[in-house]
Amino acid sequence: MTLSHSSFPDLGDGNAASHHARTTRGPSMADVAREAGVSSQTVSRVANGLSNVEETTKKRVLDAMQKLGYRPNRAARALKSGRFKSIGVIMFTLSTFGNMRTLDAIATAASRAGYSVTLIPLTDPTTGKVSGAYHQLREQQVDGVVIIFEAHLLDHADIALPEDLPAVVIDSNAGSGYSVVDTDQHQGARLATEHLLELGHRQVWHIGGPDSSFSALHRAESWKQTLEEAGIKAPEVLHGDWSAESGYRIGLELGKNPAVSAIFAANDQMALGAMRAMHELGRAIPEDVSIVGFDDLEEAASFWPPLTTIRQDFHAVGRLSIENLLHQIAGDTPARDVSVPTRLMVRKSTAPPAPGRSV
């Protein structure tokens, strides 16, 4: 992943006029060629990522570029190719497991396609900040943008996607005419809830994510719908903030209710907090309470007991978002909505209710 920035060489003690001129315009391709002892054409081939340059020569040119602070003229390259070979990513939080895994997949897929990635994190996603991010990306000359909203911002008419820039949205709604790539949140929540019901639990309590989250809303809606289809009235959703601490706090509340035998948490971290609460309250997992998470953290199988959870394929979400965006950049018509399937990972945190329980 790369962030656009300007850099200038350390020019030493050369002639003052020459020093001023070079500082003003920056190092040229000819400067790099002289430093590396190659032709300007060779420098051009390296700058454009062409493969017909020997590795030793390529390394010499790259070392010269780094030493002089040379940056290829992206505008000139774009005139030749019609592409800046750069993709912007706007994210509203870097703190969640899913977002970081998705960002990693986006950067990997973009790199394999020969694109760099410019990241703009927005901790305060107001209308002005969103518009400013679009403007910044245009100035940095990107070919398209991936936007990870994780909120209902696009429900507001005053926050709109750029009409003159190819865009893909992850984890939010985007309205008609825009492409969305996301995990099948409804399927995942249904798999979790059905698993607990099929074990024999007659009620499933839900620790939901924040009510501002698009994915949390869809998981809660699917959980409720699955219960209602089974003839069960859903209890109130208890909202956490994705953290283990919030899951622990809600787990203490649920664990004191002897009727609670099955919990579906909207992510693994809140499930972990709920498991801690049950241990402290002396309620055994899964003998007294079964718990299902969502995400399948790398550590989920090492929880005690190992956590039954819903696996999201973040790699596929990131890869498909880049594929979708590149189709738009190329002028093709990509699929508007791409839903990535989930998978139930059954481990030791779930079991049938203890014999004799009527819940």
Rank of each mutant, 00 (worst) to 15 (best):
A220P: 02
N324M: 03
G175F: 06
S176H: 12
L79D: 07
S358M: 13
M275Q: 11
Q203I: 08
E163D: 14
S212M: 11
P286R: 13
S321A: 10
I232G: 07
D241M: 11
E287D: 14
D124E: 10
K80F: 00
R202K: 14
S349H: 05
S302E: 12
S111H: 15
S290V: 07
R25P: 03
K256E: 14
Q140W: 05
Q328G: 03
P305C: 07
T118W: 04
I106Y: 05
L325Y: 03
D171V: 01
S290D: 01
I170V: 08
H186Y: 13
A266G: 15
G69Y: 06
M275Y: 02
A109T: 05
V338W: 07
A274V: 15
R276M: 08
S222K: 07
R34D: 12
H206E: 07
E253H: 14
E245R: 09
E194R: 10
Y115A: 02
V317Y: 03
D63L: 10
P355M: 01
T42R: 09
E55I: 09
A174F: 01
V61S: 05
A113H: 12
A354C: 01
M91Y: 00
G251I: 06
P125I: 09
A234G: 01
Q136F: 07
S28D: 04
T23W: 14
A274H: 08
S212L: 02
G209C: 02
G247Q: 09
I120E: 12
F264L: 10
H5I: 09
L199V: 01
V46N: 07
L154Y: 00
E245H: 09
N48I: 05
K348Q: 13
Q187W: 05
A274C: 14
Q185T: 08
G88A: 01
A262K: 06
E287R: 15
G251W: 05
A301I: 11
L307C: 04
T118M: 14
K233D: 15
W205D: 02
L165R: 01
A234S: 13
G273H: 06
V145D: 00
S172K: 02
A271R: 03
R283Y: 04
H20T: 12
P9V: 00
S18R: 14
T93R: 13
V43H: 03
L154N: 03
R347F: 01
A47G: 03
L326T: 02
Q41T: 12
H201D: 03
D13F: 09
L3C: 00
A192D: 07
V130I: 15
E298K: 10
E253G: 02
S176I: 12
L103D: 02
H195A: 08
S131R: 13
Q41F: 10
H19V: 11
S213K: 07
P286Y: 06
A21C: 02
N267K: 15
A16H: 11
A107S: 15
